[in-house]
Amino acid sequence: MPALSRDDVAHLARLARLELTDAELGHYAEQLDVILGAVQRVSEVAADDVDPMSHPVAISNVFRPDQQVPGLTSDQALSGAPAVEDERFRVPRILDEE
């Protein structure tokens, strides 16, 4: 695996919505490199014939009936919001649609 550059870390930070400082960029580039070096060991044993296990419990088809359950009032829903207007969550301007 390639070594992690500062730019790589900056790219990851953008993806993760973290406005890292310059000092953090450098620090994390070093630390992540060390950690990635260590965790790369997983490739030593994981053979093609081994199925990935994404879950410890082998269950499937867990469903709920299509029936209404009481939820929150709008007051409860908005109770923790940093900013509210007209029963809605007020957010800073959105640059453009996804």
Binding site: R64, D66, Q67, Q68, V69, P70, G71, L72, T73, S74, A77, L78, D86, E87, R88, F89
Partner: peptide, 25 residues
């Protein structure tokens, strides 16, 4: 009648944030 992953109603045109629960919020 209800949402994909919770029991909130799906009706169109309700008061804002009145058809929500911890899951869909």
């Amino acid at each position: 009648e209800t949402k994909m992953f919770c029991g909130c109603p799906t009706t169109f045109g309700g008061d804002p944030n009145s058809q929500v629960c911890p899951v869909c919020l």
